[in-house]
Design a protein around this nucleic acid. Structure first.
Lengths: 341, 341
DNA sequence: TTGAAAGCGCTACCAG
DNA sequence: CTGGTAGCGCTTTCAA
């Protein structure tokens, strides 16, 4: 049987209370400290987290809700979040709801039943409203990543999607592009709405007309984008540049472009999103809007830990982070008719 | 405060013992069942898992150790395993050790400290031996996926790697190929060893000479493969076909091939591994060695649940599953000199 | 700084 | 089938 603090107490001739206090960071006499340390070592003592949790009512577990396991952005963020939380003694329980609303609610109930101390959630295909009563009633803090339902007010960490796209589109416009295709996510998602707004803003700022046909729905997915881009490229839309609004869509677009045999940047300029995995090896090096992954992860953990400690701000925090831009060789300067006049 | 079984007992005028028995699947009188159900409903009672765990010493949590979050095979398996385990009331704590041995041991200690009931582990870059004493001393079952250290004997679920590759190589040989490149993982890993053996076996069975230069180390990674394949293709190795031994390497190879502008299958026949995500949209449709993902996940969960229930077989189970082959349009029939005679 | 004791909520034993 | 009860291992008063 595993050693308990009782064993330590007996061995050291100290009381349970003293041992408990010590292992929770309390101060004891130096000689007692020595004795306790030794006893812990000899007996191979480890705190029984169940008992501790029963008393403190905290599990030191954080639930994470993701739309899909293989979404690159999620994977990247989770890697970092997991590492950071582990340093603070928190484990993560990750559940994938495969975009199914019913499963989503079920998953959150499951997480709550596992007594997670907090929940971190990525935007899912469905509204998360259904499960929030559950978490609020249990006082479980929820931190949203990359967007949340419009009519809610929770802690959220996201990038400045609007400006990210706006800057990229402006960049293209300044290089002479006027017909810029954009592969965006489903317009039901907040981030897609913001990204689209960035596109519009850039165009209006440069007083250029918008052709709605240039706005392609890539469903935030590689396969959908692949089909959509292939179709768009073989149509008579005549765009000279293409912008993709997340990693998966960037990959889908690149595959489609390469397959058709259109050369980047000579025949088509391209700006991608999220410099992960594949974008790092594709040639020519794609110009990419980058998200500050590490910073996002840090903020998420930071807010969560503060909430758990009960010393977060009173009102929900919406953290907006600026995106970066990694210049590659995928954008060509062109001279449109109107400008060459 | 949340309701406890004590509240239920009071409300129903039954004893704690009866309530406990009922919520654990025991049988009570129909009218008591009704009363209990109603009380549970009204009070919004939920079992306190901490208290339960303290008593039963089981957390209903399974730890999963992965090499990297974005390895497609892992993601695919975990998705399924997580769903299955959840159906049985188990949650998973996933930790990524980023191929770092020290982190790996630390992670397992962490998982043990979280009192996971079992551990499922993918092959990591380092030997897992260091942490096994920990798990065995705590009687925590460990199930390996896709390989384990050679000198150990644990439950393991893996595919028949040797035959998978052997069949594919034989297939190519029968189509007339003699110079078949193979992009394999690091030879330190069991699966890579087996896959290589398959390559050798196919060649020897057809009495063809092996050129070791055709064996490329892709490190099970996209970027390494990309560089290696690019180099190989621009050398004078003259292979007519290329076989890749996992998903990431398949993608890396395809990107390299496309970039150089070699056409599949006219100039090079290709057989990939694991029909996931990208391989499903790349044209031409790649012929692929497929792993029975669902079946693998089922077996893993099956063994784990049996071990947890204490009714698994006495000896470690090594489960070997057959791979499949999905024929695409990436292999061309050729006639080598020797055959055309 | 230390200790005694209560009790977190549940399960499992045994008796009825 | 039901109930009384001990106790899992820990934290946390409160008093010394």
């Amino acid at each position: 049987m595993a050693a308990t603090i009782k064993d330590i107490a007996e061995k050291t001739n100290l009381s349970l209370a003293t041992i408990s206090k010590y292992i929770n960071g309390g101060v004891v006499l130096p000689k007692n400290k020595l004795a306790i340390d030794q006893a812990i070592d000899e007996l191979g003592f480890r705190v029984n987290e169940f008992a501790r949790s029963l008393k403190t009512n905290r599990s030191k577990l954080i639930g994470i809700l993701i739309p899909q396991w293989h979404v690159a952005f999620c994977a990247q963020i989770i890697t970092q979040v997991e590492g950071l939380l582990r340093q603070h003694g928190y484990g993560i329980i990750v559940c994938d709801c495969s975009g199914d609303e019913a499963v989503g609610v079920q998953v959150v109930e499951f997480l709550v039943s596992k007594s997670v101390d907090g929940i971190i959630t990525f935007p899912t295909a469905f509204s998360v409203k259904d499960y929030l009563p559950l978490t609020t009633s249990k006082n479980i803090p929820v931190v949203f990543i990359d967007g949340m339902p419009r009519d809610l007010s929770y802690d959220c960490v996201m990038v400045d999607n609007m400006n990210a796209i706006k800057k990229a589109v402006s960049y293209l416009i300044k290089k002479g592009h006027e017909r810029i295709g954009v592969v965006n996510g489903p317009i039901t998602s907040l981030s897609a709405q913001e990204r689209l707004a960035g596109y519009y803003n850039a165009y209006s700022e440069h007083s250029l007309p918008i052709d709605a046909n240039l706005i392609i729905d890539g469903g935030y997915a590689t396969d959908i984008t692949y089909e959509a881009v292939k179709k768009a490229l073989t149509s008579d839309l005549n765009f000279t540049a293409l912008l993709t609004a997340n990693y998966e869509m960037t990959i889908g677009a690149i595959i489609a472009i390469n397959e058709i045999g259109i050369s980047i940047p000579d025949e088509l300029s391209v700006i991608g999103f999220d410099d992960l995995q594949l974008t790092q090896i594709i040639k020519p090096r794609i110009s990419i809007i980058t998200q500050p992954m590490e910073c996002i992860a840090n903020m998420i953990v930071d807010i969560m830990l503060k909430r758990l400690a009960g010393n977060g701000p009173d009102s929900p925090q919406i953290i907006r982070l600026e995106t970066g831009f990694s210049e590659g060789a995928s954008v060509k300067e062109i001279y449109s008719e109107s400008r060459s006049l």
